[in-house]
Nucleic acid binder design. Structure first.
Lengths: 244, 244
DNA sequence: GCCGCGCCATGATCCAGGTCAAGGCGCCCT
DNA sequence: AGGGCGCCTTGACCTGGATCATGGCGCGGC
């Protein structure tokens, strides 16, 4: 499907060959909405960069000089309160953008969970391209909408669900995303720690751990090595998640 | 400042005369970014509608046929879980858009808190105009970014703050918005009930009530008739809010 | 004017989930 | 191979906020 572009990408070392592939991994693909010349211009203004697990892509308060597109790995978005309490806002994967919606400074921190590769665009050329490419702008508006939708679902989880419901919703959310990306929807790799999950769900490590153990006792999930989880009975998770 | 447009508005009964005024109430104004011909086209495809307090503008699941711009009053956005638990997502005022980011169906409910007047745009012409007006699209992307930012702040509040911190953050948030809209920043009218506030803050009515009483005892606020609140010691609220 | 209803406040009690503490397991480093 | 460290799990106990119960106040209807 992306043959023309692949050819171009192969000959373009300073650009971002992974961009197109990464984007096509998403349901709404940039490749599908952008004609090749625009896509080429987009790739031309980007450069590849990679990060080790635990490395910060962005610290809250940094000048927002770049827009990132993840081409491989998983990152975590988070906010800190001044006393160190942390709220994890989400986990992003291949194809997702970071920093689209920032003002002059990034308002969140971004941390690599795995080895991460990104395509990095300087903000100014990116914005210029945006103004000249309504289709790209429309696509990014659609992605901002997706993010808003997911933030609202997350809000409902934090404001109104019990610990058990939160954990089940979390597992189902990961499974759904895995399925959308074309992976096995019942086998989840969790590169984040229990503490990261707790900070995402507004709970403590102990509560997350107890909830997982409970699901294990129910034989609804199986806990594998390296934090991986196999979902054995999706229906049971659904009924425990008060899904919306 | 908007004299030219006002003249036009007065002669245009089927359009949306309040649009420009409403938008200019926001920090980033549509009037400032849109040349008059585009603004006129926007107004031309809209129609005025008004709602009584307690009336639904949108029910979750409705076909998303319209985009709304609030020209007067306050609305509440919310989500319901299947057992009736409710999460209030926000309170919107004059100048705010509703339904920009919806898919085929609205994913949230919208309820009028006061008498509300809106300018309603059928989605299709609105989208068509959008594609032809990059400046408008850019403005809407900026607004989606604002919404995302505020959703993230709300997430942090729900996931990691105590009841007292939530209530203080809420009051300060309203005060800041009031100040930005040009009102008195220490006098808040709260058209929503304690239950609405509780559902916004992830608490119960009783806890909200107790927290307010505590602030009253501290002489940090004064509770007036009709749910109005006067902020007496902003600094005290700030120190109790663990503000981010 | 009085009644009823919705909203708010506040006291008494309860409990989900937080806190504190201890131990296990895997992995890296020397 | 052994020791230390980070992460996870589990148990015991505690507490912030939920739940339950009661009463007051304001307002609209008759």
């Amino acid at each position: 499907m992306d043959m023309n572009y692949s050819t171009f990408a192969a000959s373009e070392q300073t650009g971002c060959p992974e961009l197109c592939e990464a984007c096509s991994a998403r349901t709404i693909s940039i490749c599908k909405v952008l004609p090749h010349p625009e896509l080429r211009r987009l790739a031309d203004c980007g450069s590849v960069k990679s990060y080790a697990p635990g490395e910060h892509l962005i610290r809250e308060g940094d000048a927002s000089n770049n827009v990132f597109n993840i081409t491989d790995g998983m990152v975590m978005l988070f906010r800190l309160l001044s006393d160190g309490r942390r709220q994890v806002l989400g986990f992003l994967l291949k194809g997702d953008f970071i920093g689209l919606t920032a003002g002059a400074e990034y308002d969140i921190g971004v941390l690599a969970m795995t080895r991460v590769q990104v395509c990095r665009f300087p903000r100014l050329p990116f914005r210029r391209l945006l103004l000249e490419t309504p289709l790209l702008e429309q696509e990014l508006l659609a992605r901002a909408s997706d993010e808003l939708l997911s933030a609202r679902t997350h809000l409902t989880l934090l404001g109104r669900k019990t610990a058990m419901e939160r954990v089940c919703s979390f597992l189902l959310h990961l499974a759904d995303r895995e399925a959308r990306l074309g992976g096995a929807p019942d086998l989840l790799f969790l590169p984040m720690t229990r503490t990261d999950i707790a900070d995402y769900l507004g709970l403590t490590t102990e509560t997350v751990s107890r909830s997982m153990s409970f699901l294990k006792r129910l034989k609804a999930v199986q806990l594998l090595d390296h934090g991986a989880v196999r979902i054995l009975q999706r229906s049971q998770l659904v009924s425990l998640s008060e899904n919306i």
